[in-house]
Design a protein around this nucleic acid. Sequence first.
RNA 1: GCACGGGUGUCGGAGUGGUUACGUCGGGGAUUGCAAAUCCUCUUACCUGGGUUCAAAUCCCAGCCUGUGCUCCA
Length: 462
Amino acid sequence: MTLRVYDTRTREKREFSPLNEGRVSMYVCGITPYSPSHLGHARCYLAFDLVHRWLEASGYEVDYVQNFTDIDDKILNISESEGVDFSVVSNRNIDDYFEVMDAMNVLRADHYPRVTETISEIIDMISKLQEKGHAYVGGDGVYFEIDTAPEKYGQLTGQTLEMVRAGAGGRVTDTGSGKRDHRDFALWKLAKPGEPFWESPWGDGRPGWHIECSAMSLNHFGEQFDIHGGGHDLRFPHHEAEIFQSECCTGCEPVVGYWMHNGFVNVDGEKMSKSLGNFWTVREAFENYTPLALRYALLSIPYRNPIDLSPEFLEDARMNYERLIEAYGVSLSSDSDSGTDLSEASQRITDAMNDDFNSRAAIIAIQEVVSQYSGRDIATWLEHYAGEVLGLLPSSEEMLAGRARADSARAKVTDKVEALLNEREIARQSKDWNRADEIRDELTSMDVIVEDGPDGPTWRLA
RNA sequence: GCACGGGUGUCGGAGUGGUUACGUCGGGGAUUGCAAAUCCUCUUACCUGGGUUCAAAUCCCAGCCUGUGCUCCA
């Protein structure tokens, strides 16, 4: 089976066929770094990390670009309230982004362009749009005029011009001081007093939100590229604005081969968002779940479906993840070569991933191998599928270091535990169950779990 | 209001025109002094109403419920 990818624009899974044989150009909308990353961000970049990994595992050479919107109203508000330059705020949150994503095994993109480093390309693009009659200068900036390309409306959301002209259910009444029509969107915003600005033919100011992605993708990939990703909420207006800008600027369509949008992270059925105050930052989540257990949880649902975060959901994922790690650790230290044939499981994972990156089906195939072949020589297989493809495994060095730590922790209490276990065995032989259970309770309080097997008791640390 | 998703068993949650999802929880059993672990096994499904079909939970239509977008948002 060949790779099939769901495209938001055509609303169907289509066989994946990049513009250039063997190479994939992929652009994913990055964060606006005005606050630490939350789990919604994690879900998005985990999802596209999976796409990145699978394309590479399938033999494609992937050129992956992800931007940072490092100048924006919210960043300016924060920098003003803190009395620092806006770059202090954005750099701080970009650092946070990389730290938490690295911890979750998110591979780095090839390029991370920033708005503030793309100003001249943005100005070129706006100038060209103005030359072609798609942009006009309004009172407080330069705007894209929707009416110059009405046929491009609604490609990602199915909305027609008339619907939105009607005014979003009557809620949009303000057309903005400089717009001809409320559907027009800003390409360049003139600076207010005290705001950072860049010089432009239209006056000092900064780019509108949508134009950066068009300018960056044009800059890196040219007029067309293969995959454009982002959160579901970016379909409109952000991504539709990009279609307007890019295609009207170059005259080439479609600008994007496959539009991919990941589903939301919800809490109690509602979208996790700053305005609802129901978000967890990734770091907060790390307090309760290890980064890779969190990765497991967020990849255990296909990327297009919403995830409703609940304690049950996360605990379930944690438990299953620990089984995987335990099995990997055991197989790493076992040197038995039993020639286990895992080709059927491999094929199931390939089929799952080729079906629009179905990571859940792939994870289930891995867990079945884990439960079926535990203790066998599956380390190499796990390293490929659970490690390289799904990014779920720590490096073998980390695994071995972790086991070394566990061994030394075990060594510290071994003498005492063995002594207590001996005493308990004597009690058990004389059927003094009260004394035996008392000793087991004592061991439990030392975080030692005792398991009586047919060959006598074994123990491990909790 | 309009657009686009989703409604599955105790719960979480895939998938699918006819055949076990998976995990969890619960019941029963093996093993066990008890417990744990392990193994076996069972029960509880596909929102409602129509339609297409030999066959629909799966496709189509309508309805209901719910989420998201239409404003900054991954």
